[in-house]
């Protein structure tokens, strides 16, 4: 059995936006990100994985971590655009696809995973949280997450056993390039992208969710507190908001930041059903304002299960234990 390559992507920009101020979110410096990668690499190597391909981020987070391992591993540097913007992750994902790692560790928030998927849609991911409002990446100790990747890369488990395809929102924007979201697509009355964060519930017109979780923070919690919609349900949840609403939901729209939102209607949205509306508005994807829509411009969104696959760490490690991979 040939040992497969593991991809590594770290987003230097995650954990530093305006939410540090308004939402009592934590500051996540790049030294800590480097330390997380080191722990993940340690887990992977001890589970039999030793080939890595890392995206050359502008802060050398992954590269710096790999440097310490020296001869314990084989590491390939994947070039990025070097723009210190989201384009680095998108293009980096495309470049990584050519190397075709069996799975990729993504260190960042929902937005980082989204950017990666924009570059490589049918990838296999293991997203680890650093940012805020994170639903797609779960909090997990990097050592164990790395070990799961190592087990997979060394053939201890197969992708079919441990990788699950997730839901996604496809967004068509009239006359412009399409977009996507992994957890939520939000329509706001903002005029600008500005500082990107969604901090004012009064500005929100509608929310389309792939999953609505009452145990999470962010837009997913708004839907989750009305009609929970788990990841394994083959449908999304569409909320329309107004000045008055059938549901008044007091939800954490960001860490430590509760707002009361008037939800006029909450509809389960079957796969393929199109949610259509016109501008002007600003679209936010996975917690960040991303696109400014012009007056009269049409937007169509729909939920499906055609997103990337996500590695199930629990399942992988339980299978590894039952197969005595570490014994």
């Amino acid at each position: 059995m040939t040992v497969q390559t593991i991809g590594i992507v770290a987003n230097p920009a995650s954990g530093k936006d305006v939410r540090r101020l308004v939402a009592r979110a934590s500051v996540f410096d790049n030294r800590e990100k480097c330390a997380i990668i080191r722990r993940a690499l340690s887990g992977a190597i001890n589970a039999g994985g030793y080939k890595f391909a890392f995206l050359d981020d502008s802060h050398n987070i992954a590269g710096g971590a790999l440097l310490e391992l020296g001869e314990d591993c084989e590491a390939e540097r994947v070039p990025s655009l070097g723009t210190s913007s989201v384009l680095d992750t998108i293009q980096g994902a495309r470049n990584l696809k050519e190397i075709n790692p069996i799975a990729t560790l993504i260190l960042g928030g929902d937005g980082t995973s989204r950017a990666f998927v924009k570059g490589w849609r049918d990838s296999v991911l293991l997203p680890l949280s650093t940012g805020t409002n994170n639903v797609f990446p779960r909090m997990s100790e990097a050592t164990v997450a790395g070990a799961a990747l190592g087990v997979l890369a060394a053939g201890g488990v197969s992708l079919e056993e441990v990788a699950v395809p997730v839901k996604i929102i496809d967004v068509e924007i009239e006359g412009e390039s399409p977009d996507l979201a992994l957890i939520d697509a939000v329509v706001t009355r903002d005029k600008f992208i500005g500082s990107r964060a969604l901090l004012d519930g009064d500005m929100i017109n509608r929310i389309l969710l792939t999953r609505a979780e009452p145990t999470a923070v962010g837009m997913t919690a708004v839907g989750g507190l009305i009609r929970p919609t788990p990841e394994d349900e083959d449908a999304g949840l569409h909320l329309t908001l107004g000045r008055t609403g059938k549901h008044q939901v007091h939800a954490p729209i960001a860490p430590g930041l509760y707002e009361t939102l008037n939800v006029h209607k909450a509809e389960v949205t079957p796969f393929g059903k199109v949610v259509e509306f016109k501008g002007p508005c600003v679209l936010a994807f996975d917690g960040e304002r991303e696109r400014e829509i012009q007056v009269g411009q049409t937007v169509r969104m729909r939920v499906s299960r055609t997103g990337p696959s996500v590695l199930d760490v629990d399942k992988t490690m339980h299978l590894a234990a039952s197969r005595k991979v570490f014994n």
Partner: peptide
């Protein structure tokens, strides 16, 4: 360092990048 904001936690204040 690349982000000067990283130093904020050392001072004991929030650091934000925009």
């Amino acid at each position: 360092i690349v982000d000067v904001a990283d130093r904020a936690s050392g001072y004991g204040m929030p650091g934000v990048i925009c």
